[in-house]
Design a protein around this nucleic acid. Structure first.
Lengths: 345, 345
DNA sequence: AGAGCGGCCGAAAACGATTTCGTGTTGAAA
DNA sequence: TTTCAACACGAAATCGTTTTCGGCCGCTCT
């Protein structure tokens, strides 16, 4: 086990000074060709790599991005990470990931942990609990300390910074419009409680679609779910007692639960009821019937977030103008929303 | 935007020396109560936090774990990350994540990127391509440089280090045994090509289960898949032309593809054919019929890996004895393998 | 011959923290 | 009065780099 090579060791070995070695390796004109080549050859031979920590300290830049996410066992966030990682790595940045598990305290802890010099900036999607509390002091503090933040997906309006979102409302509206166009008259929505920003927006899209088509809005067809884990029973009960011909679910989990509930009732999807979902993941692709969904393009969101952050990091003299990038959603029509295309069962 | 507070600034402000400040904050007895309290009060007031990078440089420890994974949009790896993250954070470690995308080159690049002082050690699951090439020099080099490695799930025998695996073979055997116990006579297996270590082991478990029950091994009922993306057609064709009453699939994707293929053939699961899968994820839980699977306990694997690594980092005088932790698998019996429990369709 | 200049290199400071080793001031013991 | 220990603090080294500044040598130009 050999400890890593340092400039000092090279200098001692070659009988020159540390500064000479440093300059030689960085191709400074101050160093004669002869010395330069000798040092470079030696460095290459013993596979010298400058110590990142020392560089970080010297440059006061870590080339590291802090990523704080509510969860990770979730296709959407996983794809976001993919997108971030790809752009970051390509630009020579590392990504430190911390999970908040949707807890406010863990989110704050994670940010404090990373803010002490470990990262140059943050990409963050706020925890559910944070949205509920509406306490964003930790975000503001990071910004005040000079650490740029890019918010992704679950953004908060009160904080002034770069943001990457999709048009949740529009995506939902398109999905519901598609159900309407397919002949649905009584469309239920299964959504989250209102403090989850994206849930609220998707609900709004649903309402707007109905409004635009002069359809009556029936509050009785709106189910707002607090706890995903206990959603199946709620959804069963909800659908058992309502007569509907279309369901719009704001995520894959609700969509599959809805289909199960409809089966319980003896109904088939898409034969009797059409279903449209949100968030395209493995589940949507593999489910039978495969789910029509609003694609959020998570990887693209992540990539954009990383680009925005890195740009801000590398052009710090940039004006204080922040932008909100809106990634286009797209409808993926699969079996669950198409009467004509009955799946194999 | 105030730059972060440093010891030097506190010292200047309070008209003492940097060393005094440092000692006061660390409760050294060398400092008088009065000075100590004054300094601590000031530090608290202005929310001083020591700079992590400087500490890392000084201590030659980063308290950061490098995690290199083949992919992340995959429930298993996502849960592994969860487990690692939880243990790491609780012990005051950060986690840097890099994705290899199953590419050998990216795996090597990532490790080089992190080995230059950014992390104290690695947790790694080797890329598919790396397993195919059987080139593990980058792992050995990291170890030679004094960076401990813990291999997870996709391990390599040639490298001597701590490892965390499940008994893939035993898990598969149990699953197949369960199919046999349920009355299956002709059980097909849908697995990966052999160079994927876990695939090979699961195949072996399948063979052993058949052997133990004195069942004839029919090579014609073994399908080895190279590319997951084009697996559906292969599986369709495979199942169309074979008469079977049970399917063991080495992952959720293959399992759902198999069920689709069986539907195409006019067969129902579990009525006509029983299906057992491997890797418990959202897909297994939500699918209709829900999938019986071998649970790999990814979070537990991740947690164990983090524990092993951190232990080795903090007790460096430890003997050079490495251990391989084998996490118990467990069978989760859901609808797809139980004739009696017909799902709602 | 003296001034000036360019080529080549080393010393030292800096990044922010910890730690070892002084050093000056007390007060008490001899 | 001298000596010595305890006390409270500061100077400086250290971690591994980069960079500024200055120095030395030899050469050319007047």
């Amino acid at each position: 086990m050999k400890p890593k090579l340092t400039l000092k060791q090279i200098a001692r070995e070659l009988d020159v000074s540390v500064s000479t070695v440093s300059k030689a390796l960085r191709d400074s004109v101050e160093i004669s060709e002869e010395t330069r080549l000798k040092i470079k050859a030696f460095a290459k031979l013993y596979n010298y790599k400058p110590n990142n920590i020392a560089l970080s300290l010297k440059n006061r830049k870590t080339r590291t991005i802090g990523l704080v996410l509510p969860e990770i066992v979730h296709d959407f966030f996983a794809t976001v990470i993919s997108g971030i990682e790809q752009v970051a790595n390509q630009k020579g940045y590392n990504v430190i990931i911390c999970l908040s598990n949707n807890s406010f305290d863990r989110e704050v802890m994670n940010m404090e942990m990373l803010a002490n010099g470990s990262t140059d900036g943050f990409i963050l999607s706020v925890a559910k609990e944070t949205q509920q509390r509406e306490d964003y002091h930790h975000l503001q503090e990071a910004i005040n300390q000079g650490m740029p933040i890019v918010l992704v997906d679950r953004v908060v309006d009160q904080i002034v910074c770069d943001k990457v979102i999709i048009d949740d409302s529009e995506g939902a509206q398109n999905a519901v419009q598609h159900l309407i166009d397919s002949g649905c008259q009584k469309i239920a929505i299964i959504t989250t409680v209102d403090y989850v920003s994206v849930g609220k927006l998707r609900t709004r899209g649903y309402l707007e679609a109905l409004g635009k088509n002069n359809m009556v809005i029936n509050e009785d067809l709106i189910l707002k779910i607090e706890d995903v884990d206990q959603s199946q029973e709620e959804i069963n009960e909800f659908l058992r007692t309502r007569e509907i011909d279309g369901v719009f679910a704001v995520n894959e989990q609700f969509a599959t639960s809805a289909i199960k509930a409809l089966h319980l009732k003896g109904l088939s999807v898409p034969r009797d009821v059409l279903v449209f979902s949100f968030s395209d993941g493995e589940l949507s692709r593999r489910f039978i019937p495969s789910l029509s969904t609003v694609n959020q393009h998570g990887a693209e969101m992540g990539a954009k977030a990383a680009e925005l952050l890195i740009e801000r990091l590398e052009k710090p003299v940039d004006e204080e103008r922040f932008q909100t990038a809106i990634i286009k959603t797209s409808l993926i029509e699969r079996e669950s929303s198409q009467k004509t295309k009955t799946p194999v069962e």
